[in-house]
Design a protein around this nucleic acid. Structure first.
Lengths: 203, 203
DNA sequence: ACAGTTTTTTACTCCAGCGTCAATAAGATG
DNA sequence: CATCTTATTGACGCTGGAGTAAAAAACTGT
């Protein structure tokens, strides 16, 4: 298998790929059974190695969870950046944000950003995660407020609406991983439709 | 404190009250930190007794979780029964169901009915919980379908919409327990508003 | 094929936390 | 106040699973 060289991965790259694979497996099982209910042996088994091998890549179990959560928040951040880059109304941004958030999340499949999960992290990383969560929520809230001001959205409470927004996003990940009669993007589109119709202003 | 008798609780009643109190405390901490991350010592401490005392009331930790989950599903069931008893359109029933579900849930404060939590139960109780979940989801789905048929709701996908419905309900419990700037019923009303506007048909 | 490096394993240690048991405290009843 | 029942406690056994150290195996380059 040695080296057709050029196209084939270096050591560093292989290491990185293995890390990523491990994180994805971990995220899946954490989501299914919960962080504390999942043993490292279980994750290792699923990958096809021994628990100890994981310690070669990750400092400890918490580190593994941390990277799962980072993956998830990165999806939100990516969606946010795309929305900010869009040259359009607050309403357009909100729609794009929602759609892209769900899209990337379903693609990446990180871990649920539940309070319980975050609280399982060491103090310092907890702070970071809670900060990212607040940041995201604030951005959405402001977007809703702007959309109301510009007259494209009815007079809803921005805080509650932002929460409603995030709730649906969080839920879709949870729900769609279990059953899967519909393709991911169909579900995403439908959620966008339901959310947008809930807030849009009509003449 | 002995007995003004007549109005005061019997032994059985006291026992039942203590059980209920314990379940509520457990539910709260389970929700905060997750089932497996919560030790019985912790729950006992919060109540002001020793871990061993809990074993006088509950067979084991799983039993405690079980009762928390039952509490939650009972809220859904109550809402369903009220909706079924209502003499009105499918649309009216759906609205009532949503509102009452959230209301009772915020009042009772059971445990999150996550897959992870359910999977922490012994086989037999797992089956029961999954069955209740399915039952609830089916009822909502049918209600949505009926509302579409009767022409009061747009042509949405009943399955996805039912999921959207449940996602928001589940989320509200999670979210509102943490922060609480608004009174419970205000949040409930707002969620109903957002959901209903998302599906209602307009001329 | 050999020396050096990276990766994985085998074989442990250690402890948090569930659940038990026997002993004690509190409360009712005659 | 003596006895019987109910409620609670303190002390302990035991196991699952996180984390470690040292050896073995798998590559890499020369």
């Amino acid at each position: 298998m040695a080296n057709w060289n050029g196209a084939v991965a270096s050591r560093e790259e292989i290491r990185e790929l293995k890390r990523r694979a491990a994180v994805r497996v971990a995220a899946r099982i954490f989501n299914e059974k919960g962080y504390h209910a999942t043993s490292l042996d279980e994750i290792a088994d699923e990958i096809g190695v021994t628990k100890t091998a994981l310690y070669y890549y990750f400092k400890n179990k918490e580190q593994l969870l941390y990277e799962c959560l980072v993956l998830t928040y990165d999806c939100g951040q990516t969606a946010q950046q795309e929305a900010q880059a869009l040259d359009g109304s607050a309403y357009d941004k909100l729609c794009l944000m929602y759609r892209r958030f769900i899209d990337t999340l379903m693609e990446e499949r990180g871990a649920y950003t539940t309070t319980a999960n975050i609280k399982s992290l060491p103090e310092c990383q907890q702070k970071e995660m809670f900060a990212r969560r607040t940041q995201l929520e604030t951005y959405i809230r402001d977007l809703v407020q702007d959309a109301i001001t510009e007259g494209s959205v009815r007079d809803v409470d921005p805080r509650v609406t932002a929460s409603f927004f995030l709730g649906a996003v969080n839920w879709i990940l949870r729900w769609h991983s279990e059953e899967e009669a519909l393709p991911a993007n169909a579900v995403a589109a439908h959620f966008v439709d339901l959310f947008v119709n809930g807030i849009v202003k009509r003449d």
